[in-house]
């Protein structure tokens, strides 16, 4: 038996195929889901992929939030189903109020595309339990609206409850980014407190701006650190099945 992991395609999704491929490489069975349907097809977990759903019109993720599929996912997420939002998927989760905060344009206004080092701050979520706490991983980052924002009280709450899952950290490849954004070491977009990804109180919903699905096969991308996102969720769903 293996886990069935849904990948939702919205109009303007770009990385849905890569996410499906990552799930297969991690040992799961990807199930393609369409934004306009509301049937979750009995999946055990869901990935909201990257891209520019609805052209990022209004705000990134703002219109996708009202897709029929999102109503089903919100219900399932509140019931404990693992949900991972990557990049645009993270923005959709924030707009859906499944995760705190919001994303605005990168501080320097440039599109960023680089291999990014992250520190795993919370290795207890459905999507990160196969990492070690404090482990540093490298996955690609590519976005325009990647600056994570929340008010100070929300940020304190996220930190206090261990809900910051990933933080941007500096590495030797950071020369270019530093030049554009001198006040933050490894922070590529001005995100508050270097936050790259967060979770909900229960730890089943995780969102991050960088792209683990692009780091799942040797020779394509910076390595295979991304695989453990998907294998974590697969193991988590099988453990509770």
């Amino acid at each position: 038996m293996t886990a069935r992991v849904g990948v939702v395609t919205f109009p303007g999704s770009l990385d849905d195929r890569d996410a499906a491929r990552a799930i297969r490489l991690a040992g799961g069975e990807p199930v393609r889901l369409w934004h306009a349907d509301s049937d979750l097809a009995g999946v055990d977990a869901v990935v909201l992929p990257g891209g520019f759903s609805y052209g990022d019109y209004l705000r990134a993720g703002a219109i996708s939030r009202f897709a029929p599929m999102m109503a089903s996912i919100t219900d399932a997420a509140n019931g404990g189903m693992p949900v991972l939002g990557i990049c645009n998927g993270f923005q959709i989760l924030c707009e859906s109020h499944l995760l705190a905060g919001a994303m605005v344009k990168n501080e320097h206004l440039h599109f960023v595309c680089k291999d990014q080092t992250l520190r795993v701050e919370n290795a207890d979520t459905a999507w990160t339990h196969q990492f070690g706490a404090g482990e540093e991983i490298v996955v690609p980052l590519k976005n325009q609206d990647g600056q994570f924002i929340a008010d100070e009280r929300t940020l304190d709450e996220l930190e206090g409850e261990g809900r910051v899952v990933f933080r941007y950290v500096a590495d030797s490849s950071d020369g270019g980014t530093r030049g554009r954004n001198p006040r933050a070491g490894g922070n590529p977009n001005g995100s508050r407190r270097d936050i790259a990804g967060i979770t909900n109180a229960r730890g089943n919903v995780v969102g991050l701006m960088p792209h683990p699905e692009h780091a799942t096969e040797q020779g394509f991308g910076p390595g295979t650190d991304g695989l453990r996102f998907f294998s974590s969720a697969i193991a988590a769903t099988l453990a509770t099945a």
Partner: peptide, 8 residues
């Protein structure tokens, strides 16, 4: 609820 996001 739609045209603005009260977080930002």
């Amino acid at each position: 609820e739609v045209l603005s996001n009260p977080v930002i």
